[in-house]
Design a protein around this nucleic acid. Structure first.
Lengths: 352, 352
DNA sequence: AGCGATCATGAAACCGGTTACTGTTTATGA
DNA sequence: TCATAAACAGTAACCGGTTTCATGATCGCT
């Protein structure tokens, strides 16, 4: 069954396709009687204009591509929700491209990124928003950066919480270095000095930022750092368990507080601690990063740093809209301030 | 800066666009020398064919639309991940349409669904997958069902865990009635007889299924139902807290076990119980539904029913692919068996 | 040498809209 | 009353690909 086209409508209404198009888009005056006749036919046939044909000539699709590493990590749906909220009003729809960073080697992930970059460009999206993946690499290869650079020359690209060498990308981010400082300061103020840092990946910029904030805070407080108390290895729950196990199975002094690279790692850390018979926050304080929705519903409620995912998303969407509508006033870098959420997993250290 | 087209390539290579198209699609033999010349130019100019133009004539876009109520509920990203895993191999990309059921009235949600239904059709997606929303309504209005019906006449629609009156939709679902029976049986076997059910919405089919399974199990065990111990009111964490509070602030006998409509509600219920000084599972057993990823990382680990989100997604994607490629052997209804995940929030009731 | 099959390629139609240009009416103003 | 502008509608080009059909060249074979 063939879908009905403007030509069908035009023929049946005894007008030209131009007129049909005009009533469709309200782009020029049409006599009331003709308009009604056409409207009637449109309703009668449930006519739906073909967006492909329209986009082909208008050179705009109302589609925005989103590339992210793992929709399963609660952080991403949250910023996605923010994106939707804002972009919906401007009539955009989203292409979701999950490069599936979980259970696979990073090589495959980046190749998928390249693949999606190409597909999105071919599909003529109006813009691309990237979160995570290569833009999180502390040292992204020239080649991988160039791919995005080239896309950026043809259409707007917005980076969330990341960057790429050889820049001039539009970015929106929350200041994670300051965030990590806030978290660490909070622990120091509680009286902790034996603080460990676990999770993340050394080669990822979010980890280096969080670590750098951690270091700064320790330094400013005049606390000696123990490099062997900084262990990286991932962003998942099991990472948290594994790294805590490594930390606590060692001989000698144990930390009284642990800063985790994100909430999932923190959850794993808590899990380990409780299993090992440690009470939280009595024996050990634990902090997260991201403030995923469940953080405040856990037992105990997780002290963490809100990256303001929702606003991150909304801001990115709004910047993207301005970029697409050629509003050139838009600033290249927007920085959001993180917010420390003090809850139940932190307390002064026990005397010993 | 204008993007380069097949015409540009053709001109520079002194061939016709037909030839360029042929090397692009390997659709007919081309002399090796010409092919190389054209390939060279394609690389030189970073030529990317315009998918809109291609789709316009080929009548296939490789795009699948997904309509869901709330990406922020961890259940959905999980099935999304399943969809991606499967569909990626077949070269599909996804339009994500979040109707944003959170913080808004349902009227707005359904109108957004209609809106997205129309947009997706106009954008010529190859198929639409729906989860939640109107397909979860126990009594969906004729009018709302008809909208989907009409879309279904023009392109494949697959429903996940839901249905619509006036059917003949392709569906994939996990048997939630049996699931609820399994959960309830588990509690009964542990020795519970005072079992409450909280969460969900009466007007939603998933809730009536889960409730019906609950009722059947109770009946089969010969346990008298207390209708005042069945309270609905939502699917969120705060719902769980609120309903538990209502349940436990009443005078008289209290349940020793609570079946929750989903994991988020269960988390809220646990939160309430612990806050109220009840120990879990000592004083009260609590079960969830869905088995979201964090369920097994909580403290205590949540006993829940796995809906096998990942498989749900993969199956839906695979069915959609068959539908798109006109494989008519595909069965209309695929049912997955749920899996009871016994963890730490359930135990025999305390003596009293 | 002659003939059909195969190879390689081009011309042009087509997909389904939008819009610049043009022309015909009708309304407006001096 | 006539010039001029505004309203209304049609023709055809255009967006950037794919594909059918036609044509000439090449090849194998008798």
């Amino acid at each position: 069954m063939k879908p009905v086209t403007v030509y069908d409508i035009a023929r049946e209404a005894n007008v030209s396709v131009a007129t049909v198009s005009r009533v469709l888009n309200n782009t020029a005056p049409v006599k009331a009687s003709t308009r009604e006749k056409i409207m009637g036919l449109i309703n009668k046939h449930q006519f739906q204009p073909n967006a492909l044909a329209r986009s082909l000539i208008k050179k705009e699709t109302g589609m925005i591509g989103i590339i992210l590493p793992d929709i399963t990590n609660p952080f991403f749906p949250e910023v996605l929700a923010g994106l939707e909220q804002e972009a919906r009003n401007n009539g955009y729809t989203f292409f979701l491209c999950d490069t599936g960073s979980h259970n696979q080697d990073s090589k495959a992930q980046y190749s998928r990124e390249s693949q999606y970059l190409r597909i999105l460009a071919e599909k003529q999206v109006d813009g691309i928003i990237m979160i995570g993946g290569r833009i999180d690499l502390a040292k992204c290869s020239r080649e991988m950066a160039k791919e995005v650079q080239e896309v950026n020359n043809r259409l707007p690209v917005v980076l969330i919480n990341g960057n790429l060498p050889g820049g001039k990308f539009h970015r929106v981010m929350t200041d994670q270095t300051i965030g990590a400082m806030q978290v660490t300061d909070h622990l120091i103020e509680l009286g902790h000095t034996d603080i460990a840092f676990i999770g993340g990946y050394n080669q990822m910029s979010n980890t280096v930022q969080r670590l750098s904030g951690f270091r700064s805070a320790m330094e400013q407080a005049g606390i000696a750092m123990r490099e062997d108390w900084i262990i990286t290895g991932g962003f998942k729950v099991h990472t948290g368990k594994a790294l805590m196990s490594e930390l606590f199975s060692r001989d000698g002094r144990k930390p009284t507080a642990v800063v985790c690279a994100n909430d999932l790692v923190a959850i794993g850390a808590i899990k380990y601690a409780v299993t090992a018979g440690l009470s939280i926050p009595g024996d050990i304080s634990i902090t997260g990063f991201d403030d995923i929705p469940l953080a405040e519903s856990m037992i105990p409620e997780l002290t963490t740093l809100s990256l303001r995912c929702l606003e991150l998303g909304r801001t990115a969407a709004s910047i993207m809209h301005q970029l697409i509508t050629r509003n050139n006033q838009v600033s290249e870098l927007t920085t959001l301030q993180p917010k420390l959420m003090i809850r139940e997993t932190t307390a002064p250290p026990a005397n010993r």
